[in-house]
């Protein structure tokens, strides 16, 4: 007994496997449906992963909605700090992400690149939090006695379907610009590679991101598409890398409530994939007509 322990120390111990649960309202619940699926990579199962149901969609939208007003009220500076904090925490966990990306079938060096790019992307959007408004807002020339200006406001709750093939960078490249402006979101992780999304949820949970701002589900987009695209409390949808048929279905359902749908087919590792227009995609323009005194020859009085 002692001898065999000495000889094969590691293999005698039962490995403690991690349960990958979803992330809703700052907590890690299992799916209410109690269902699971087993993503398989190179013939090996990645484990039992929650198969989200329409009620999980409903619950996470409730969480996102109730978190939205408070998140949007935070100062842009504070949202920047929090995005930066996510990057810090991700950096600290990079080894775990590396292991998981490799388990999900990625080559070691491209996994490493993906992680560093993910961290950089968060820093990139952290920087934009208090700057996009200056770039996209405007003071508009009008012929009447009004000070007329347009600013961006977050649309509200965004449902995002993350990239299937770019499980970490694709996920972060959607979440970061969406929450930068004060939206909250529900994200459906890559069906085949959900592990890194759930581990990213653990990063979020320890990064001062208020519960409900980001919610992460695992499951099948085909099953859930009708429910999130018809949901009246979802204000915009972001889809990455879905087929034409699915995109069409989602757009048709979304049209019932004239919901904004953004379709992406980005190569997320490209430098151009990080840009402030992604923030603008999930903002609405609010134009204010502010009455001013009569403009005279001596100029406006504001």
């Amino acid at each position: 007994m002692t001898e065999s322990n000495e000889n094969s120390g590691k293999s005698d111990r039962l490995e403690v496997l991690k349960t990958y649960k979803m992330y809703i309202d700052g907590k890690f619940p299992r799916t209410e449906s109690a269902r699971y699926y087993q993503p398989v990579v190179n013939g090996t199962s990645l484990g039992n992963v929650c198969l989200a149901s329409r009620k999980d969609v409903r619950n996470s939208v409730v969480a996102a909605r109730s978190a939205q007003a408070a998140w949007a009220r935070r100062t842009a500076y504070n949202r920047a700090q929090i995005l930066y904090r996510i990057a810090e925490m991700l950096e600290g966990r990079s080894q775990q992400f590396l292991d998981e990306l490799i388990r999900q079938g990625m080559e070691a060096d491209s996994a490493e690149t993906q992680i560093t790019q993910s961290i950089d992307r968060l820093i990139y959007y952290a920087g934009w939090c208090d700057k996009y408004q200056q770039v996209f807002s405007s003071v508009n020339p009008v012929a009447s006695s009004h000070f007329n200006f347009s600013t961006l406001e977050p649309v509200g709750v965004v449902f995002a379907v993350a990239s299937r093939d770019c499980p970490l960078l694709g996920l972060i490249s959607l979440i970061a610009p969406v929450i930068a402006s004060g939206n909250t979101c529900v994200v459906l992780a890559s069906e085949n590679s959900p592990l890194s999304a759930i581990t990213f949820a653990e990063v979020l949970a320890t990064s001062d991101v208020p519960g409900g701002v980001v919610n992460i589900l695992t499951g099948r987009v085909e099953e859930l598409s009708e429910h999130f695209s018809r949901h009246l409390d979802v204000n915009a949808i972001a889809c990455d890398g879905l087929g034409v048929d699915l995109n069409t279905t989602i757009k048709e359902f979304a049209s019932e409530t004239i919901k904004r749908v953004k379709i992406y087919h980005q190569e997320w590792s490209a430098e151009a994939a990080a840009n402030p227009y992604l923030i603008q995609d999930f903002c609405e323009v609010k134009t204010t007509w502010h009455p001013i005194e009569q403009i005279t020859e001596s100029g406006a009085s504001y």
Binding site: R58, V61, R65, R230, H231, L232, D233, E256
Partner: peptide, 9 residues
């Protein structure tokens, strides 16, 4: 209707 509702309606 079959669609989840939002409070602001």
């Amino acid at each position: 209707t079959g669609a989840y509702q939002a409070a602001n309606y």
